[in-house]
């Protein structure tokens, strides 16, 4: 709204472009509804080259900020394509626009082999996310029970208030840190091991904040999604009360497709 106020009287038309959500294998034109990005209700449709199709909608040619609405719209289109229509999308990163449909066809032509290869490998596979948080305080209490050395140092610091306990405190801190890291590592390893039977691949992302011990994505065959779910429930029961899980999906395989393309002008352009 506020952005248009300044330009409302400009006679020139805004430049139109085409926003790309994902690439699918699909030879026939498809429509996915008026769910396009930009808030104008643009139809989401396909642009084709041989058996590949880009899922796109018309849009103003502009830089899209990853606002809540824009990011969720991008993802929603991918989900409609993947969940409601059972395609396997290779997702485009947020904010990719081309100027014309012809440009998209050129893009599909130039990357045809790579895209086809990735689509083949991703066919009928889904991504699930799993973030695991622990409660540091209750873990610390566990560690105190498990490690005699921690109890001993703690007792020493408590009884020895008068004298300097600097060294003992340092030692305790280092010990607790090591014990926490070892604990987190072994929990994460157990979780991966339990899930590996149901997943084809996993990717560990950076953990966010100091409560999180695992931030992973799993690639799962559509037919094994139920098994994967059962394994997640098994883990949930095993660590109930000690770990918190955030389990999400299905997602398009964002974490398992990384294609960086570099555009360059051809001679003669």
């Amino acid at each position: 709204m506020e952005a248009t106020a300044a330009t409302a009287h400009e006679p020139q038309r805004r430049t139109e472009g085409i926003y790309v959500y994902c690439i699918i294998e699909c030879a026939e034109p498809r429509r996915f509804g008026r769910i396009g990005i930009g808030g104008r209700g643009d139809e989401v449709y396909t642009v084709h080259h041989r058996e590949l199709a880009a899922v796109v909608s018309r849009s103003e040619l502009q830089v899209y900020d990853p606002t809540r609405e824009n990011a969720l719209t991008h993802e929603h289109v991918n989900e409609v394509v993947m969940v409601d229509n059972a395609f396997t999308p290779v997702p485009m990163s947020f904010g990719t626009l081309f100027k014309t449909e012809e440009d998209i066809v050129e893009f599909l032509k130039d990357t045809y082999d790579a895209l086809r290869d990735v689509l083949k490998k991703m066919k009928d596979k889904l991504e699930f996310g799993l973030k695991v948080n622990w409660d540091r305080d209750s873990v610390l209490a566990d560690l105190e029970r498990e490690y005699e050395e921690i109890r001993r140092l703690k007792a020493q610091i408590e009884t020895d208030r008068a004298s300097s306990t600097y060294f003992a405190r340092m030692q305790l801190g280092r010990l607790v840190e090591q014990a926490l890291a070892a604990k987190s590592e072994s929990l994460v390893r157990e979780i991966y091991e339990t899930l590996s039977e149901a997943a084809l691949a996993s990717r560990a992302n950076k953990v966010i904040g100091d409560r999180m011990i695992m931030n992973a994505a799993f690639l799962v065959e559509r037919g094994k999604a139920e098994l994967f779910d059962r394994k997640i429930q098994e883990i949930g029961r095993r660590y109930e009360g000690r770990l918190q899980f955030r389990y999400t999906g299905p997602w398009p395989p964002y974490n398992f497709v990384t294609i960086r393309l570099q555009l360059q002008p051809t001679a003669g352009v």
Binding site: L72, E79, V90, T96, R246, T248, P250, N255, T258
Partner: peptide, 25 residues
Amino acid sequence: VVERSPGGTSLIDVLDRVLDKGIII
């Protein structure tokens, strides 16, 4: 025991994926 949230329900999980993953030009 562990509820699954569909993909597009949490902004942070969406941003985690759509911004720097997939096909990047």
